[in-house]
């Protein structure tokens, strides 16, 4: 199931998109990851992850209006698709299930 596999980094990116809600685009996602995970990532690495996620159909994107703060270039906003959300849920439940199976903690 290579096509629908969710990598750890990809999961984080999706979570950040969800946190940012309406304002998820390159720079903000990058900052959010930095803020949440204390992990500086390059824009290039983020781009790769976003491309993969979009290919798998977990996220969607659309362009915003041109703004002067970035040399008149449009922002590309990302949002998590239903399919993406379901996959995230599944991943979370899978983990929780596994957590509950740990005897020491119960």
């Amino acid at each position: 199931m290579k096509g629908t596999h969710l990598g750890e980094f990809q999961e984080i990116v999706m979570l950040c998109i969800l946190i940012l809600n309406e304002n998820a685009y390159g720079v903000t996602i990058q900052e959010e990851i930095d803020k949440q995970m204390k992990r500086a990532i390059s824009r290039g690495a983020l781009h790769t992850a976003l491309t993969r996620l979009e290919e798998k159909g977990f996220i969607r994107s659309h362009y915003g209006e041109p703004t002067s703060e970035r040399g008149g270039r449009r922002k590309r906003f990302y949002e998590v698709s239903t399919k993406g959300l379901e996959t995230l849920q599944e991943a979370k439940e899978l983990r929780q299930g596994m957590w509950q199976l740990i005897p020491k903690l119960n």
Binding site: G26, G71, K75
Partner: peptide, 11 residues
């Protein structure tokens, strides 16, 4: 280019 350069410029 538009998206990526825009992001880089904003950062």
């Amino acid at each position: 280019f538009e998206e990526l350069e825009g992001d880089l410029e904003e950062s």
